[in-house]
Amino acid sequence: MATMNTRARRVRTAGALAPAAAAVLLLGGCGGSSPGEAASGEPSAGSGLGGQAGPSADRPDGVNAPAATTFATVPGAPKDEGAQSATDGLVVHPSAAVPVLDRPGGRTVATLPAEQLGGPTWVPVVETSGGWRRVLLPSRPNRATGWISAATPGLRTAHTPYTVRIDLARRSLTLLESARPVGRWKVAVGGARTPTPPGRTFVMASLAPAKQTPSPIVLPLGTHSATLDTFGGGPGTVALHGWPDRAVFGRAVTHGCVRVPADALRRLSSVPLGTLVLING
């Protein structure tokens, strides 16, 4: 499928819509960053995307480490072990790029920039050790984590009462507030060849695409398609978003994203960034 993306871009250029590429193009209407809009850590339009480390334009400690964005790969990031565990809801926001270490006091493997896709970076804390916080990263490989110092100047902490649970087998999404379900919807999940990746991730950004269709709001998560290195010119980021055709809900038909009904999207769009999304396989 990764090679299919190259083909898809060609198809898009030619204006001929192959069925497999239709979703790309529809959301491609949401997609395609304008030149000059690229935020820190993003590759410029036309450069290679998937599987590459983003440039580290903002290096607080001078280490040549990638900026942890949805466009980057952080090779030395320790893998998240708590695949389905909820946390106490602690989320953190760095006011400037902070070093990300592979263990408390260890080696710098990345920097976490203050912004993701033009909005503030908020990442969930999944473990604490003394003055160190282990956070989920929005980069490849999936389940990438890293440690940041709690003493980082300007590090803002907050609490989100929400958790999102996605059951791939039931093709349902449940929104929990203070561990109590406050909404449950049938959703569309990844198809057999392009499954939605299971694991623990988070709401990474909230985007309002230029085109309202297929979704007025797109909520990119901190995880990526495991089978598509790139998609539609993007890095294969998995997102929660709406879909105009209600027939898809309850089916495994997407390229990895989770398509949700309009009322679910409305509720999810008010959930704080950094909120955990637990996807069970």
């Binding site: 790309v24 529809l26 959301l27 491609g28 209407g29 949401c30 997609g31 395609g32 960053s33 809009e37 949805t70 809801g89 989320v91 896709l117 033009g118 909005g119 908020w122 803002r156 902490t157 907050a158 609490h159 989100t160 009462p161 990844g190 392009t194 709401v203 950004a205 909230s206 985007l207 309002a208 695409p209 230029a210 297929p214 709001i217 797109v218 990119p220 990526h224 398609s225 598509l228 998609f231 539609g232 010119g233 993007g234 294969g236 980021t237 998995v238 997102a239 978003h241 997407t254 390229h255 990895g256 994203c257 398509r259 769009s269 008010s270 959930v271 704080p272 960034l273 950094g274 909120t275």
Partner: peptide, 20 residues
């Protein structure tokens, strides 16, 4: 508790091709 409630996000006018 808690003193600091995480803020609701403000959507950024931006496009990102995602794995729809």
């Amino acid at each position: 508790r808690p003193a600091a409630e995480a803020p609701a996000p403000t959507p950024v006018k931006r496009d990102l091709p995602v794995a729809g």
